[in-house]
Design a protein around this nucleic acid. Structure first.
Lengths: 352, 352
DNA sequence: TGAGGTTGTTGGAACGTTTCAATCAGTTGT
DNA sequence: ACAACTGATTGAAACGTTCCAACAACCTCA
C-alpha cells in the first residue's frame, strides 16, 4: 500500500480511503490511485485488515459429515447467504469426532471468525458456552436448543420420525425397526422418539420398536445394519425399517437386496433427509424431506444479525417442519399367499 | 498476550517464547505462563500471527461442485494431508461459474493463503498465472498440464474414457453415445477423446459416437440427457451411453427407467468417478474409478513441498491410472428374440 | 475583511503478534 | 579474581492495514 501511495503521489491514508470510502476522495485522485493499484498489481492484505478490525469476514461451519449431501446442501445455503453479506464460509468436517470438533473450534476462535454455525457432535456444550462467553456468536444448526446462550435452527425431528413411522403403520406394518445411532446424537434420539410416539398414537406398544443401533450414520454402517436385519429369525424380523438418515437407508437397501430380500415386499424402508440420491436408489427411497438450503441460509442470517446487533441481541429459535416424500421403497405391496415365489429367502410377508 | 505477560510477571517476549519455542524457557517460568493463559482464557490471534509471518496456515481448495461426492472425497484427502502439516483447507465452490472462481481466487489471495489447489472452470489460465507470478503456489487438481507454471495431479482421463468405451464395445454395443459437457471442461473433452480412441481401436468409426451435450455435470442435466436419448427414433437410438460423470449417469438412469426403458437391456450405462452412490443406484452403476482421496492428498503434498522449497522448487506432474468398476448397468444381457416382452417401449435390442 | 464552512488530504497511533539483538545472572576454568 | 561462556529473559522494531484528529486550501456571506 505504501508503494501504491508513492506511485500515485498521495499519502497512505488516501489510498486507504480510496479502498474503503471512495466517495471521500476527489475523482482524479481516486483514479490516480486506482491506476497505481493496477500497475503494481496490489492485493490487499486481509490479515492486516482483520487485525485492525478485530474480526474477520469469515464464518465457520462445522458439520458432522461433509460426505453427507444433506450437509453440503446446508453449506450451500449458508454460503450464498454469507456471500450476500460479503462474508465467506469456512467448511469444517468434524466427522462425528469430538476431538476434531474441538480442534476446529480452537482454530476458528484463533481466526476470530464472525461466528460459528455448528451441528455439535455430543451433548457437552461447555466448549461452545466458553466460545459464546468470549464473544463469538454461535448458532446451532439442525439442533433445537432450550439454552439461552444461542440461536438455533432446527427441523422438528420428533415430528419427522412420527410422520415416517405413521406412514409405515398406515401401510400395514406392525413389526417396525429403527436403525440409527449413536443415540447421543440429538437428531437420532428425537427421530426415534417420534417413532415411538407414532406407535403409541396408533395404539401399538412403543416398546416393540426394534432398535438396530449403528456407530454412525454412514452408508457402510447401513450395510452392517442391513446384514443384522437379514440375519434375524424370520418370525422376529421386522417388515419395515425407519432409518435415521438416507445414507444409512441406502446402505440397508444395498445389503438386504444383495442378500436376496426384496424391497419393499420383504422389507420396507424409509430414510430421512431426502438427499438427491434417495430418488435415484436401487429402489427409489421414501424419505423425510427437510429444507436443507433454507436451514443453512437461515442459520447464517441469524448469525450475522447477532454479530451486528451485539449485546442487544435476543437469541431466536427457528423450527422448520419436515414433510414426507413417499417413493417405492415403502409402497404398498399386493398381498400374496405366503409362498416364496422365486425360491429366494422370503422374509415375513411384508404387510399387515 | 500483554495481560498474560503481566499476570505471569514476565515480558511479552517470554510469553511468545512459551508459545513458539517452549524449550527455550525455564520450566517454572513456562508453567507460570501456561497457568496465566489458562486463568485468563487467552486465545492467540491468528490474524496477527499471519500478519507477522506474511503467510497464513490456510490452503485454498477450489472445486467445480461441492455437491458432487467426487470432490468432497478429494477434499477429504486434502484435508487430512493438510492437518498432518498443521494447515487447514478452505473449501470453495466455484459451481462451474468463472465469476465465482474469480471471486474466490481474489479472496484467497487477499488471505495470503499458503497456496491454491484448483480444478479450473475454463481454459483461461491468466488469472492463475498472475497468482503464481505474485508468489502463491498453485496446483492443478484433476487436470494435467503441460505448463511449466505449476504442479498438477491428474487421472488419465483419456485412458478412462477408453476403458469405459472398450468395455461397452466388448459387451457388443455398436451404437454408443457420449453424454457430457461443456466440452470446454478438460475432463469432459479428454474422456470423450478416450471414447473415440476406443472406437477407432476396435475398427469402428469414431465419428459414429453420438454426442449428447449437457450444460453441466449434474443429476438434473443427466435427466434431461436421458429424456433426449429416449426421444430418439428407435433405429437411431444408442444401445449404450458413456456418461462423463456419475451424477450425469444417475440422472440418465433415473429418467430412462422412469420412461419405461430397462437398464441395461434397452440401454447400458457407464459413468465416471465411481462415487459411493454409484453402487447403490436403481441399477448398480458401472463406472470408472479414480483414487479420489489420493488425488487430494497428493495435490496438498505437492503444494506444501512447493511452499517449503520456494524458488528452488521444480514443478511436478502426477498422473494416476483409472480402473473399471463393472456393475449391473452395463452387464451382458441374455440375447432374446426381438419381441417386446412387457408391452413397454423396447429400445433397440441392446446387444449385438 | 474576516469568521465560519466545506472539501480533500495527511500523519501517526493502534491492532497483537514474532523475532532478534542485547542484557543479565550464574557458572566454569585459569 | 577475572575472563569467557551458557542459559534465561527482555525491549523494541516490524508486519500492513484502518481510523481519526488535524490541517490546508478554497468558498461564502455578513
Amino acid at each position: 500500500m505504501k508503494d501504491v501511495a508513492r506511485q500515485a503521489w498521495v499519502s497512505l491514508g488516501t489510498v486507504s480511503n480510496v479502498l474503503n470510502r471512495p466517495d471521500l476522495v476527489a475523482p482524479d485522485t481516486r483514479q490516480r490511485v486506482l491506476d497505481a493499484i493496477d500497475v503494481l498489481g496490489f492485493v490487499r492484505n486481509e490479515s492486516a485488515r482483520q487485525l485492525r478490525a478485530g474480526r474477520s469476514r469469515t464464518i465457520g461451519l462445522v458439520v458432522l459429515d461433509v460426505s453427507n449431501p444433506f450437509f453440503t446442501d446446508v453449506a450451500h445455503g449458508a454460503e450464498s447467504a454469507a456471500a450476500e453479506n460479503g462474508s465467506v464460509v469456512m467448511l469444517c468436517n468434524s466427522g462425528q469426532r469430538p476431538e476434531s470438533e474441538g480442534r476446529y473450534l480452537d482454530l476458528l476462535e484463533e481466526q476470530r471468525v464472525q461466528g460459528v454455525l455448528i451441528t455439535p457432535v455430543g451433548t457437552d456444550y461447555s466448549r461452545l458456552e466458553l466460545l459464546a462467553a468470549r464473544g463469538t456468536p454461535v448458532v446451532l444448526v439442525d439442533r433445537g436448543s432450550d439454552s439461552a446462550n444461542w440461536c438455533s435452527v432446527a427441523v422438528d425431528d420428533v415430528l419427522g420420525g412420527q410422520l415416517a413411522t405413521s406412514h409405515l403403520i398406515e401401510r400395514g406394518h406392525r413389526r417396525i425397526a429403527f436403525a440409527g445411532g449413536p443415540l447421543s446424537l440429538r437428531q437420532v434420539a428425537e427421530r426415534r422418539l417420534g417413532a415411538t410416539n407414532a406407535l403409541a398414537a396408533a395404539g401399538l406398544d412403543p416398546a416393540a420398536l426394534r432398535d438396530i443401533e449403528t456407530p454412525a450414520l454412514t452408508v457402510s454402517d447401513g450395510r452392517a445394519a442391513g446384514d443384522r436385519i437379514v440375519d434375524l429369525a424370520e418370525a422376529d424380523r421386522p417388515t419395515a425399517v425407519f432409518c435415521a438418515n438416507d445414507l444409512l437407508a441406502l446402505g440397508v437397501l444395498q445389503s438386504v437386496t444383495a442378500r436376496g430380500a426384496r424391497v419393499p415386499r420383504d422389507l420396507a424402508i424409509i430414510g430421512y433427509d431426502d438427499i438427491d440420491f434417495a430418488a435415484a436408489a436401487t429402489v427409489p427411497l421414501s424419505s423425510v424431506r427437510q429444507p436443507r438450503e433454507a436451514i443453512g441460509r437461515t442459520a447464517t442470517e441469524l448469525l450475522l444479525d447477532e454479530a451486528r446487533e451485539g449485546a442487544a441481541h435476543q437469541h431466536r429459535r427457528v423450527i422448520f417442519k419436515p414433510e414426507l416424500a413417499i417413493r417405492a421403497s415403502s409402497s404398498l405391496v399386493r398381498r400374496r399367499p405366503r409362498t416364496s415365489p422365486s425360491g429366494k429367502r422370503s422374509a415375513a410377508a411384508a404387510n399387515d
